[in-house]
Simulated assay, not measured.
Amino acid sequence: MEANLQHAIELYTAGKLEEAREQLLQLVTANPKHPQTLYYTASVHDSLGLEHEAEPYYRAALDNGLTGSERAEAFLGLGSTYRALGEYQQAVETLQQGVQEFPQQRALQVFLAMALYNVQRHAEAMELVLRIIAETSSNEDIQTYRRAILFYAPQLNQVWEA
């Protein structure tokens, strides 16, 4: 099984998506609870623009104990899939869970900000984006104003009177 999965992953990585999809579907049929197989089956469907088909595989991969960086990527993939399908609240919940488990994974935070925007939680979305920019940018101008950006990020609607 592992050799077959590795071959399917190599096909996926090489951009041979249809071939990878065929092999992964066979593997997942033979072993429907193998988390890595489920994850790559979701990923290949996602890469092919088949979000509806990807979603149950992402959920199953997470539910069946996917670990490590693949787990973080599965949260991102599932959250992004929900968002692409217009299921914005599910996207927020999924991405929040991912951020809770992987607080240093910035891509999850960025996708969460997009989903927060979609559910009209604009202030939270902007705060998250501003924090990410201030904390990760190497741009000299941004770093000059880092403290101010971090100060204002959670209080964008605050007005200070003289």
Rank of each mutant, 00 (worst) to 15 (best):
N4H: 12
R106Y: 09
Q109N: 02
T41S: 12
V92Y: 02
L128G: 08
A134D: 00
R121I: 12
T41C: 10
A72Y: 09
A91V: 02
E135W: 09
L48I: 11
S137C: 11
L11E: 05
I133P: 01
Q104K: 15
L85W: 05
H52C: 00
A42R: 01
L17F: 12
H7W: 02
H52S: 13
P35Q: 09
R146N: 04
Y88H: 13
E124F: 00
Q100N: 11
Q36A: 11
A20N: 06
Y40H: 14
G79A: 00
P56I: 05
L156S: 04
Q143W: 08
V129T: 14
Y152A: 14
A84L: 03
N31T: 13
Y117V: 08
T37R: 08
L66R: 04
S137H: 13
Q120W: 01
R146Q: 15
E101D: 02
Q90L: 13
E140H: 11
A91Y: 02
S137D: 12
Y117Q: 15
Y12W: 05
T29P: 00
G98N: 05
Q89P: 06
H52K: 14
E101R: 03
G65S: 07
M126L: 15
T81V: 10
V129M: 14
Q105M: 06
V110Q: 13
Q36F: 06
A54M: 08
W160M: 09
L78I: 04
A123F: 10
N118H: 15
Q23A: 13
V129Y: 09
T94Q: 04
I133R: 12
Y39T: 10
E135Y: 08
V99K: 07
N157I: 00
L128R: 07
T81M: 06
T81W: 06
E55F: 03
L50G: 05
E70F: 03
Q90G: 01
E2Y: 10
A91G: 04
K16I: 01
Q120T: 07
G65M: 03
